[in-house]
């Protein structure tokens, strides 16, 4: 393992110290590992809380700021944060209009956020709603399993709901909106390489040079199947086909296409993939009207990419375009 580390056990704590110094517009509660807006709580606005394991940077702290999230909780690498953190964060961002938990669908995250909502309800009079985001079409048989994973679509949900929260919408309206954006979204990912969790020190799985994993999640867990390495054009097809088979994206006012890098794949290759994906979508009658290309939901040093497609309508388009000022996404401000 060759990484910029002091001691793997201190990685998350030391990274948060750096983040704190780099971003004066944010506040970091180091004891509870909560990152939040310096102006929190914003009076009268619904607070938006997300979070999850570390190792997905810029997710999740990179999306805190006006127009997006109010706070996130950071867990250990690839491990859900704990209920105490989430309950404390909920208190910090409650501006009197309630707090919406945006939960990525992983068993641990869902359980811990559930327990946090129970704690927050027991300790304060904060109203909490939770929306679970699950957009990953690689997981089949979802009735009998932990369900589809939350992956790239969370960025669309957090951005769009963040914009709506700034307009002063109510907690239940925002929860409905979050569910609508999630329902409108599907994702599929692939890996060229595994990733190395620092505490383990070696790659999570062995992937030979001439093979790739299709249908991966965001934690270096192996995918649904392994296939020979293929040209980018064919890989694009392997990602787009299951997404389009799962939902009809031809109607509405076009789609948001998000091509995400998993950490070690250069932007040069991600734009090549976007070109291939956009061509396939156009051939299928799906019209990309907004795009996001880059490493936004990473899996440490994994090489690979995922594609997320979100059906837009006039309202969602306006909310996507609304101003946002976070370290990960910034426009219109």
């Amino acid at each position: 393992m060759k990484k910029l580390l002091n001691d793997p056990a201190d990685l998350v704590a030391e990274s948060l110290r750096g983040l704190d110094r780099a971003h004066p517009e944010l506040r970091v509660d180091h004891e509870n590992r909560i990152i939040y807006r310096a102006d929190a709580p914003v009076s009268g606005k619904v607070g938006l809380l997300s979070g999850g394991g570390s190792g997905h940077e810029p997710a999740h702290a990179g999306f805190i700021g006006p127009g997006m999230l109010d706070a996130v909780c950071a867990g250990e690498v690839f491990t859900s944060p704990v209920p105490d953190q989430m309950a404390e964060a909920t208190k910090k961002i409650d501006g009197g209009a309630g707090v919406l938990h945006l939960v990525w669908n992983y068993t641990g995250d869902v359980m811990n956020f559930d327990m946090a909502a129970e704690l927050a309800a027991a300790e304060t009079d904060t109203t909490v709603e939770a929306v679970v985001m699950n957009d990953d079409v690689a997981v089949e048989d979802s009735l009998f399993t932990a369900g589809r994973r939350g992956t790239g679509a969370a960025i669309a949900v957090e951005k769009i709901v963040g914009a709506a929260a700034e307009q002063g919408r109510s907690l239940s309206e925002l929860a409905d909106l979050a569910r609508r954006v999630n329902d409108n979204s599907r994702s599929m990912g692939m890996a060229l390489t595994s990733c190395t969790v620092p505490a383990k020190g070696s790659p999570t799985f062995d992937l030979p040079d001439d093979e790739i994993e299709i249908g991966i999640g965001i934690h270096g867990e192996p995918g649904r199947r392994r296939v020979p390495l293929a040209p980018a054009r064919e890989i694009a097809q392997m990602l787009v086909d299951p997404v389009l088979a799962d939902r009809d994206f031809t109607g509405g006012d076009g789609v948001l296409v998000f091509v995400n890098g998993t950490g070690a794949t250069p932007l040069l290759e991600l734009y090549l993939m976007y070109g291939e994906i956009a061509a396939l979508l156009e051939k299928a009658g799906v019209v990309p009207v907004r795009t996001l290309v880059g490493p936004y939901v990473t899996s440490l040093d994994m090489a690979g990419c995922s594609v997320s497609i979100t059906q837009l309508d006039d309202e969602l388009l306006r909310l996507w375009d609304a101003p946002v000022a976070t370290s990960g996404l910034r426009w219109g401000m």
Partner: peptide, 12 residues
């Protein structure tokens, strides 16, 4: 355990 483990094992 709930405070320090996280993930799925902490709550369970």
């Amino acid at each position: 355990l709930i405070r320090s483990v996280g993930g799925t094992s902490g709550p369970l």
